[in-house]
Amino acid sequence: TFYNFIMGFQNDNTPFGILAEHVSEDKAFPRLEERHQVIRAYVMSNYTDHQLIETTNRAISLYMANL
Protein backbone atom coordinates (compact mmCIF):
# COMPACT_ATOMS: atom_id res chain seq x y z
CA THR A 1 0.00 0.00 0.00
CA PHE A 2 0.99 3.64 -0.27
CA TYR A 3 1.08 3.76 3.52
CA ASN A 4 3.70 1.00 3.66
CA PHE A 5 5.68 2.73 0.91
CA ILE A 6 5.79 6.10 2.65
CA MET A 7 6.55 4.53 6.05
CA GLY A 8 9.83 3.38 4.50
CA PHE A 9 10.91 7.03 4.69
CA GLN A 10 10.30 7.45 8.44
CA ASN A 11 13.19 9.14 10.24
CA ASP A 12 14.58 10.46 6.93
CA ASN A 13 15.48 14.14 6.99
CA THR A 14 13.73 14.66 3.64
CA PRO A 15 10.31 15.87 2.48
CA PHE A 16 9.21 12.22 2.21
CA GLY A 17 10.38 11.67 5.79
CA ILE A 18 8.32 14.65 6.96
CA LEU A 19 5.31 13.28 5.09
CA ALA A 20 5.85 9.86 6.68
CA GLU A 21 5.82 11.47 10.12
CA HIS A 22 2.53 13.25 9.40
CA VAL A 23 0.94 10.12 7.95
CA SER A 24 2.03 7.99 10.92
CA GLU A 25 0.43 10.48 13.33
CA ASP A 26 -2.77 10.77 11.26
CA LYS A 27 -5.05 8.12 12.76
CA ALA A 28 -7.65 8.62 10.00
CA PHE A 29 -5.20 8.18 7.10
CA PRO A 30 -6.46 5.46 4.71
CA ARG A 31 -3.69 3.00 5.56
CA LEU A 32 -5.08 0.04 3.62
CA GLU A 33 -6.07 2.04 0.55
CA GLU A 34 -4.31 1.19 -2.70
CA ARG A 35 -6.08 3.57 -5.09
CA HIS A 36 -3.99 6.70 -5.48
CA GLN A 37 -7.08 8.78 -6.30
CA VAL A 38 -8.53 8.06 -2.85
CA ILE A 39 -5.25 8.88 -1.11
CA ARG A 40 -4.85 12.12 -3.07
CA ALA A 41 -8.46 13.14 -2.32
CA TYR A 42 -7.96 12.41 1.38
CA VAL A 43 -4.82 14.54 1.55
CA MET A 44 -6.42 17.40 -0.40
CA SER A 45 -9.39 17.38 1.99
CA ASN A 46 -7.50 16.98 5.26
CA TYR A 47 -4.07 18.59 4.93
CA THR A 48 -3.60 22.35 4.66
CA ASP A 49 0.19 22.55 4.29
CA HIS A 50 0.87 23.17 0.59
CA GLN A 51 4.35 21.64 0.80
CA LEU A 52 2.92 18.48 2.36
CA ILE A 53 0.33 18.22 -0.42
CA GLU A 54 3.01 18.65 -3.11
CA THR A 55 5.21 16.06 -1.40
CA THR A 56 2.27 13.65 -1.33
CA ASN A 57 1.75 14.14 -5.06
CA ARG A 58 5.44 13.41 -5.74
CA ALA A 59 5.37 10.38 -3.43
CA ILE A 60 2.26 9.00 -5.13
CA SER A 61 3.93 9.40 -8.54
CA LEU A 62 7.01 7.53 -7.34
CA TYR A 63 4.86 4.85 -5.69
CA MET A 64 2.84 4.34 -8.89
CA ALA A 65 6.01 4.13 -11.00
CA ASN A 66 7.34 1.33 -8.79
CA LEU A 67 4.25 -0.89 -8.73
Rank of each mutant, 00 (worst) to 15 (best):
T1A: 07
R31Q: 07
E21L: 15
F5N: 00
N11E: 06
Y63I: 06
D12H: 12
R40P: 00
Q10M: 15
S45G: 09
M7F: 03
H50N: 12
V38T: 07
F5T: 00
T55D: 04
E54N: 07
T56K: 02
Y3E: 00
I60Y: 05
T1H: 05
A65V: 09
M7N: 02
M64Q: 09
K27H: 10
L52N: 02
F9C: 04
R40C: 12
E25C: 12
P15G: 07
G8F: 08
S24W: 09
I18H: 10
F29Y: 04
E34P: 10
F29K: 00
H50I: 14
N11K: 10
A20P: 02
Y47T: 04
F29Q: 01
Q37G: 09
A65H: 10
D49I: 06
L32V: 07
N11P: 04
E33C: 06
N46A: 09
L52H: 03
I18Q: 12
F2P: 00
S45R: 10
E21V: 14
N13D: 13
P30W: 09
D26G: 03
Q10T: 09
A65Y: 10
V23A: 04
D26Y: 06
A41N: 12
Q51G: 11
F2M: 02
Y3H: 02
D12N: 10
A41K: 09
K27T: 11
D49S: 08
E34I: 15
K27M: 11
I39D: 00
H50A: 14
E33D: 05
M44Y: 12
N57K: 11
R58M: 11
T55R: 05
F16T: 01
R58W: 10
Q37I: 08
Y3M: 01
N66I: 14
I18F: 10
F29P: 01
E21H: 15
A28K: 11
P30C: 03
G8V: 07
L67Y: 07
N46P: 03
N11Q: 08
F2D: 01
N13K: 12
I39K: 01
V23D: 04
M44E: 14
P15T: 07
A65M: 12
I53T: 05
D12L: 12
N4I: 09
S24Q: 12
T55Q: 05
I6F: 03
S61A: 15
A28Q: 12
L67P: 08
G8D: 07
E34F: 15
N4C: 13
E21M: 15
Q37D: 14
T14L: 03
Y47R: 01
A20K: 06
I60H: 01
V43G: 01
A41S: 09
F9G: 00
P30Q: 02
E25V: 11
E54R: 08
I6T: 00
N66F: 15
Q10Y: 14
T1C: 06
N13S: 09
P30A: 03
L52P: 01
Q10I: 15
T14P: 02
N46H: 12
T48F: 10
L67K: 13
Y63L: 07
R40G: 05
H36L: 15
T55P: 02
D12V: 07
E21C: 12
F9E: 00
F5Q: 00
A59T: 03
K27V: 11
V43N: 00
V43S: 02
I60P: 00
E34H: 15
D49R: 04
I6N: 00
L62M: 12
N57C: 11
I18G: 06
N66K: 11
T48H: 11
E54Q: 08
D49Y: 13
T56W: 14
R40E: 08
T55I: 14
M44L: 12
F16V: 02
M64A: 09
T1S: 13
N46W: 06
E33I: 04
T55L: 12
N11C: 10
N57E: 15
Y63Q: 04
R31W: 06
R40W: 15
E25Q: 15
M7L: 10
S61K: 13
Y47Q: 02
E25G: 14
P30S: 03
V38P: 04
K27C: 09
K27R: 11
A20I: 04
L67I: 12
T56N: 04
A20G: 02
P30T: 03
V38M: 10
I60V: 06
N57R: 09
R58P: 03
P15S: 10
Y63G: 00
L62D: 05
Y42D: 04
N46Q: 07
A59L: 10
R35K: 11
L62Y: 07
M64P: 01
N4V: 09
H36G: 14
Y63H: 08
G8Q: 15
Y3S: 00
N13A: 09
N57V: 11
E33G: 03
M7S: 04
F5H: 00
T48I: 09
I53Y: 05
Y42C: 02
G17N: 04
E54L: 10
L62G: 03
D49Q: 06
L19N: 02
L52M: 07
V38W: 07
F9M: 05
R58N: 09
P15H: 09
Y3I: 02
F2C: 04
G17K: 06
E33H: 04
I53R: 09
N57L: 15
Q10R: 15
L67N: 11
F2Y: 03
M64G: 04
H50D: 12
T48Y: 08
R58D: 08
A28W: 12
A41H: 11
E33T: 06
F29R: 13
T1W: 05
E34W: 15
I39W: 03
K27S: 11
N4R: 08
I39S: 00
M7V: 06
N46M: 10
H36M: 14
D12R: 13
T55C: 06
L62H: 06
T48Q: 11
R35E: 08
Q37A: 11
Y42M: 03
